[in-house]
């Protein structure tokens, strides 16, 4: 059953690549709609992957981007948690700060780029700033709603068993809100990853975004395509292998899946 599904997936990708090749051949060779250097081809991308891997560009770019996004994401989680917890703790903030955060959160992260450049110049900090601005507020909101939605009966039961407020947070509220937290982190991660790319394309530091722009500057459409595919793959891989896996594990343990 599982093998069959896997075979289906593989088949789909083979068909997709064949279609891609067909479109390339049709547009460049048969009908001459486009110049070959303006359209990526499967073979060209494969060549490019080999080339970028062999000279080490791809690996350093991936490592650079991952380090940067991890650092930015960690700061986001920290800021988001503090912000989210303060909104829960103070009604005043819930009434005034929360609508503001909801508003800021709708802002595409690329809008923070001008700010970042004016404040930090074309530096590492500028990119981190964009990542944090792009993901911290969403995390704050999910922390807040996670805590808010803990069933009151859990808290009541703990109180009648004499649990003090510190342990109430550690042993009841935190575990009860954990599924919501993980869902929030997952979403925060995807925001952070996108924001990272907004930041990286405008800067000159080593990273996937930078390599993407180099491809543009060299008018190498295959390199652009390669990097885009790498960005997609890493995004999916981390989402599925880390966050979705953690989410499933938690939900399954509680019989919610």
């Amino acid at each position: 059953m599982k093998g069959k599904k896997f075979a289906g997936n593989i088949l789909f990708f083979i068909l997709l690549i064949l279609l891609w090749q067909l479109m390339y051949t049709a547009s460049c060779d048969w009908f001459h709609w486009a110049k070959p250097y303006a359209v990526p081809s499967p073979a060209g991308v494969a060549d490019c992957i080999v080339y970028l891997l062999s000279n080490g560009t791809l690996l350093t770019a991936i490592v650079g981007s991952l380090l940067r996004v991890s650092f930015g994401f960690a700061i986001s989680v920290l800021i988001g948690s503090i912000l989210g917890a303060s909104i829960v703790a103070f009604d005043y903030l819930a009434q005034n700060l929360k609508p503001l955060i909801l508003g800021i959160q709708t802002l595409p992260s690329i809008c923070w780029v001008p700010f970042a450049i004016l404040w930090f110049g074309l530096t590492e900090s500028a990119i981190i700033f964009v990542v944090v601005m792009g993901s911290a507020f969403g995390i704050a909101l999910s922390i807040e709603s996670g805590i808010k939605n803990v069933p009151p009966i859990y808290i009541k039961a703990a109180k009648t068993m004499g649990v003090d407020s510190l342990h109430l947070y550690l042993r009841v509220i935190f575990p009860a809100a954990l599924p919501a937290f993980v869902a929030g982190l997952k979403q925060g991660w995807s925001f952070a990853w996108r924001a990272l790319m907004s930041g990286e394309v405008m800067s000159a530091s080593v990273g996937l975004g930078y390599t993407l722009m180099v491809g543009r500057d060299l008018a190498d459409i295959n390199q652009v395509m390669t990097i885009m595919l790498v960005i997609i793959c890493i995004g999916i891989l981390i989402d599925k292998r880390i966050f979705t896996l953690a989410e499933h594990h938690i939900l399954k343990k509680r019989g919610l899946l």
């Binding site: 009966i153 859990y154 009541k156 039961a157 703990a158 109180k159 009648t160 068993m161 004499g162 649990v163 003090d164 342990h167 042993r171 009841v172 575990p175 009860a176 954990l178 343990k253 509680r254 019989g255 919610l256």
Partner: peptide, 30 residues
Amino acid sequence: PGADRVVMFQEAALYPWLNVKENVLFGLQA
């Protein structure tokens, strides 16, 4: 509220992230 007046609620109010024994241990730890 306080541990001198334990309540058994109408709905069981057990913690789904703990197993049976850990639920019983919960109050004892406090």
